[in-house]
């Protein structure tokens, strides 16, 4: 029973949302909008579960004085600071000039963009480590990456300056992006979509049910 009802719900919802695509008639024409509204409301409710979990784990850590409990204190204080400021600003919480906006600009945003920027270092270490001519496939990966990188900076055209115009490295890089890259992306995209069709069908038919848990 606890498992059959959810399976039924998944199946019916799946069929309805396939069918709505082909029916312009009310109410089917609204279904996808409704779903996105409903989902955002459910997600907004569910974040209470997440936040409570974050609180619970941090408090347990602090209470037991487990290693790193001090950091848990910082997390909770920052969370409370952000929520108190955010709720006290009202619905225009993110307007330019509010305290919430200040915290966003000077705390959230530097942290976020720096974490993103770290990626530059990892691109370098991955290039050093992973682009090795272990076999033919790896060599192709390496050569394609090398040529495209070379073609993206002025040095590439300097090195290939002796070639007739139209065959310089920057153009070669563009060609690789335009043709072989398109071919690969297309094959991947078609494959992915067929994979989605079949795994969606498994979910709708109730063959795949591990996400629903046990009885």
């Amino acid at each position: 029973m606890r498992r059959d009802i959810p399976l039924l719900i998944t199946g019916i919802a799946g069929v309805v949302f396939i069918v709505q695509y082909f029916i312009p008639h009310f109410p089917f024409n609204r279904f996808s909008n409704w779903f996105s509204d409903w989902f955002s409301i459910v997600a907004a409710c569910a974040i209470w579960l997440g936040a409570l979990n974050l609180f619970k784990l941090s408090l347990e850590k602090i209470h037991a004085r487990r290693e790193g409990w001090g950091y848990a204190v910082i997390t909770i204080v920052c969370f409370l600071l952000m929520t108190v400021v955010g709720f006290s600003e009202g619905r225009d919480y993110s307007k330019v000039g509010t305290g919430f906006d200040w915290l966003y600009n000077y705390v959230y945003s530097p942290l976020s963009s720096t974490m993103f920027a770290i990626l530059a270092f990892f691109v370098a270490s991955a290039s050093y480590r992973a682009f090795r001519a272990r076999n033919f496939e790896a060599t192709l990966l390496l050569i394609a990456a090398f040529l495209v990188m070379l073609g993206r900076v002025p040095i590439g055209d300097l090195l290939s300056g002796f070639m007739p115009p139209g065959m310089r490295l920057s153009q070669l890089a563009t060609w690789i992006m335009q043709f072989p890259n398109t071919a690969g992306q297309r094959a991947i995209l078609i494959g992915i979509s067929l994979g989605i069709v079949s795994s969606s069908l498994r979910l709708i038919l109730g063959i795949e049910r591990s996400y629903l848990g046990g009885d």
Binding site: I188, L189, I190, G191, I192, L194, G195, I196, V197, S198, S199, L201, R202, I207, E208, S210
Partner: peptide, 30 residues
């Protein structure tokens, strides 16, 4: 796992015939 293989993974790992059957079905699409 490249693209489509992600969606095939749970069927592959389950090793259940009916799940594997769905993989053959998507090959028809290809």
């Amino acid at each position: 796992l490249i693209g489509e293989e992600l969606f095939a993974a749970s069927a592959y790992l389950s090793n259940e015939p009916k799940q594997l059957g769905s993989l053959k079905g998507q090959d028809v699409g290809k």
